[in-house]
Design a binder for these strands. Sequence first.
DNA 1: TCGATTGTTTAGTATATACTAAACAATTGA
DNA 2: TCAATTGTTTAGTATATACTAAACAATCGA
Lengths: 106, 106
Amino acid sequence: MIEQQFESPNLADISLTQLLKSLSDPTRLKIVGTLLRAKKEVSCAQFENLGKKSNLSQHYRNLRLAGLVSIRRAGRHSYLALRKTALDERFPDLIETIVNNSEDKC
Amino acid sequence: MIEQQFESPNLADISLTQLLKSLSDPTRLKIVGTLLRAKKEVSCAQFENLGKKSNLSQHYRNLRLAGLVSIRRAGRHSYLALRKTALDERFPDLIETIVNNSEDKC
DNA sequence: TCGATTGTTTAGTATATACTAAACAATTGA
DNA sequence: TCAATTGTTTAGTATATACTAAACAATCGA
């Protein structure tokens, strides 16, 4: 099975405002919340309830370019993972605080 | 001297994504950072280094409608204040964490 | 081999955003 | 009274965004 890693930017090149803008979309915020709670990579199939595939694919790309997730492609499937270690290093407490504040207030 | 209070929304009606979108602009994030550190209301004159007045005025309005600040008009001057108590109640730790992560990473 | 599956990319559209300049409104101080 | 000050609002523009449908690419399983 062929594996492929879509390119993610270096977190040091990501500004806080870029990251906030990415998280300011409800769909993307829900995806990140799911990834944080999962504590491991999640198949894109898990997110189909959030909208059309083509639209979701754009959101994945947005999250990747904002430094929030890495995307691994394996066979026909794609998997998203939160870049937690790198994020925690550059933006301490940020993702957790935001996600914690998103329950029922998204 | 006539005083006037521009209308601010009830924080309960503000979604996290609305708030994040407002903070995802560098100018607005800097304003909020200044207000948080000031711990009191600040004259708009303090923000003139951040751009043209007409543009700043739009940013103030955006921050107000996002629930982040209150605006008091007194004479020819306007004053912004962070709605800290209400924000802390609805979104615990959020503003402080975001502003803390904005130093040099705006 | 070939149809179905899974997801990405492209093209097109409608809406939102950030910015500028100019007009406007209210206030102040000479 | 009147010019200067302070900030808001409006009009106009350029760019970005979210969404959809359709085309595309790669893979899997019968």
